[in-house]
């Protein structure tokens, strides 16, 4: 019991207490200076009429809906590619995984330079290929800014998806694939009827991870787009940050945090249920 004490104190002080306090504060008008006043559920009522937050949530959902399948497909393709028991295949595994150990912030600063108008290598490469001018600021257009962020995150995260899916694929016994081959199944049939169903638990895990990560996106947009152009790339966490730490409405920010947590909980639970149910059919 004594051995659990340090963990209990830390989790209590820096997790459970702040969690309860988030709920408590969300019922207050809570400026950073001055005294807080109880206002009931007004923060929550306000949140539902808040156009900025609504737009941020919509943008976050859009980002999640776009990046999740891309990540899944790229990760799956990489896993299928390096799924060979050879030394070279393992070298490629290692290479594709390297960006995973780089922080998202570092990756974002790197991308910021690489896509910088004029001086960045990729806009210059695009100009060479006859695809636009190197001096076009790709961060100034909502669509290209969004694409840059997506490409950066895929580069950084795909290796992790590859690794998880690969470990899932490798836990499928070889005999099962052999049996399918003997029964005359082609590559596509083996994939559709054996690999995919047996991989379902791993797919569920990868999906939940990437959806949760995308719904909480902050670093990449804060660093690369600063939420711009014209606030078009502000995510939910970004908006909560602005409300709490730029406008200093701590109570309102907490209410938004609670709402975000609820959305995240519902989405994660839905994915779990969905993947479990289709398992039974």
């Amino acid at each position: 019991m004594l051995l659990l004490l340090p963990a209990a104190v830390m989790l209590g002080l820096f997790f459970f207490w702040p969690l309860l306090r988030t709920i408590y504060i969300s019922f207050f008008d809570y400026p950073i200076l001055g005294s807080p006043s109880f206002i009931g559920v007004r923060n929550y009522v306000d949140a539902f009429g808040d156009k900025d937050f609504g737009q941020a949530v919509l943008f976050t959902l859009l980002y999640t809906v776009i990046i999740t399948p891309v990540l899944l497909i790229v990760g799956f393709a990489l896993a299928a590619l390096v799924r060979r028991n050879t030394r070279t295949a393992r070298v490629f595994q290692t290479i594709y995984f390297i960006p995973v150990v780089i922080g998202l912030a570092s990756a974002s600063y790197l991308s910021l330079y690489i896509w910088q108008p004029g001086i960045g290598p990729l806009p210059n490469l695009l100009e060479h290929l006859g695809l636009g001018s190197a001096s076009t600021n790709l961060f100034a257009d909502p669509v290209s800014a969004f694409l840059i962020v997506t490409v950066t995150v895929v580069w950084k995260v795909a290796g992790l998806q590859m690794l998880l899916l690969l470990s899932g694929m490798q836990s499928i016994p070889a005999e099962v694939n052999e049996a399918a081959k003997i029964d005359g199944a082609g590559a596509w049939q083996t994939f559709r009827h054996i690999t995919l169903p047996l991989l379902r638990p791993t797919l569920a895990l990868v999906l939940v991870f990437s959806v949760a990560g995308s719904l909480l996106a902050f670093d990449q947009f804060y660093i690369m787009t600063g939420g711009g152009p014209e606030n078009s790339t502000i995510t939910a966490v970004f908006q909560i940050y602005r409300v709490s730490f730029i406008q200093f409405h701590l109570g309102y920010g907490s209410a938004l945090s609670i709402l975000l947590m609820l959305v995240l909980g519902v989405v994660s639970a839905a994915q779990m249920l969905l993947l479990r149910n289709s398992d039974n059919s």
Partner: peptide, 24 residues
């Protein structure tokens, strides 16, 4: 070693299944 994934059953499954992969 440069092995990034080495789990017991993976080693067993590996030999038969993954010398050749999805591409020539």
């Amino acid at each position: 070693t440069s092995t990034s994934i080495s789990r017991p059953h993976a080693a067993r499954a590996g030999k038969a299944a993954s010398r050749r992969g999805i591409l020539p």
